[in-house]
Design a binder for these strands. Structure first.
Lengths: 230, 230
DNA sequence: CGCGGCCGTTAGGGAACCGTGAGGATCGGC
DNA sequence: GCCGATCCTCACGGTTCCCTAACGGCCGCG
């Protein structure tokens, strides 16, 4: 998820960059309108965070220029609170409008809301790569990434396998105890049946690992549980 | 363009209804949360305007209930200005959040922004090819593409079959859960009647698949739902 | 060296799920 | 009032999935 941050205020620019990066976003920075238009085209961001009050090129022109060739979500930041400018920006193609000063957690929530819309429309987001396979949690599909002319072979997983895989992908690198895995997948009353886990982890390895006998992604932590390594 | 207005304040409700109707929108009114959930399913609105401060059913529960089966844009109205509630509503699935009192022209601009996203999605799926057939969602017609001098044989679908097909075509490649399909087509209270789905998916296959016994486009995902492959 | 615990693997039965056909109930047009 | 279209109910095979059970390999320990 790449976000283009266009703001001429160096201090705010820096704060946004740090905050967004810490949330796992990939941040591209622009310091004036012309640069914003250029980077919106060259860096293919998934979302644009745009300050209207930039020098030289009017922020409104940036919106119109970007909308001429792209449907990327645009979230506007502005110090102006009068509704006239809000209406103008939104009708020019902006998707949301936040007035400064703003609460950072609200801005992040609005960004998440726009990002959610992108994932719903395009299927290219929300995918996780694991080895040569591409996993799309929303669409529940697994396809082999394009290699050596091999046509995209799709892998089929059962509902229980999906629930287990989802837990692994959402906690990369972290140790997942048997108790936690069993509780999340089979409910709190089966927290002692370790047999289920061995079976379904084996199935995931057989379907997703290049060499199931020597797992590289679904590692076992003896006596404790399992760990997923991207 | 149909808008569901859910607000218990009769005066504001009336003002919104008149203003929206004068802008050419088709307005459906709900006066409490339970009615909002019901109408969101039965009237198939293109956008929901939701007041969080309604009695009996919490507005947040309305968001979650609707989001369980529908992706319709939700614009929240609320008197609360603290960012915590904004974050909660947006993360629950709301697309925008406007605090009262608000400027009417700003609200209308935000509604236009959300409506724009909906129409953009529709425009792409004007005509979809599926096998040898060409589906026109806007005109509600299906004809066989030109082949071997065969005159264009048209396929007839019932209203329910159209609603189901529309969902499939708008989410190509994605898994559609039973809950989502049943909620969108038959409303949230029939979310457990899986028999409907089997029957109507079978009808779509019989009418649209070259060999209904071995479907290539309407694939079933056992235990989860169905998937449309173009 | 024998033993027991832990993990991985395989096979099979029972249950849930899905596809299909026939038939009744409801609604609108003529 | 008749009739066709549409929607829903019900029951019956076939398939898929989940769980149980058992067996073999690896390791640490007495």
């Amino acid at each position: 998820m790449r976000i283009l941050v266009a703001d001429d205020d160096a201090q705010l620019q820096r704060a946004l960059r740090i905050t967004l990066a810490s949330r796992g976003y990939d941040v591209v920075a622009a310091h004036d309108g012309a640069q914003a238009i250029e980077l919106a085209a060259s860096s293919h961001p998934d979302l644009v965070l745009l300050d209207l009050g930039m020098p030289q090129v009017d922020g409104m022109d940036v919106i119109r220029a970007v909308r001429a060739w792209s449907n990327v979500p645009i979230v506007v930041l502005s110090g102006r609170t009068d509704s006239a400018e809000k209406v103008e920006a939104l009708d020019a193609g902006a998707d949301d409008y936040v007035t400064k000063p703003f609460a950072m957690d609200e801005l992040l929530a609005r960004i998440r809301a726009r990002a959610r819309a992108v994932e719903g429309g395009d299927a290219d987001a929300a995918t996780v790569a694991i080895g040569d396979l591409v996993v799309d949690l929303a669409a529940k599909t697994i396809r082999s990434s394009a290699r050596d002319g091999e046509p995209s072979v799709s892998v089929h997983l059962t509902p229980t396998e999906w629930r287990l895989l989802e837990l692994f992908l959402k906690n990369p690198g972290k140790l997942l105890t048997r108790q936690m895995l069993l509780g999340e997948v089979w409910g709190p009353y089966h927290a002692n049946d370790a047999g289920y886990l061995r079976l379904y982890v084996a199935q995931l390895r057989r379907k997703l690992e290049p060499t199931p006998s020597e797992p590289r992604h679904f590692m076992t932590a003896p006596g404790m549980g399992y760990r997923f390594e991207p």
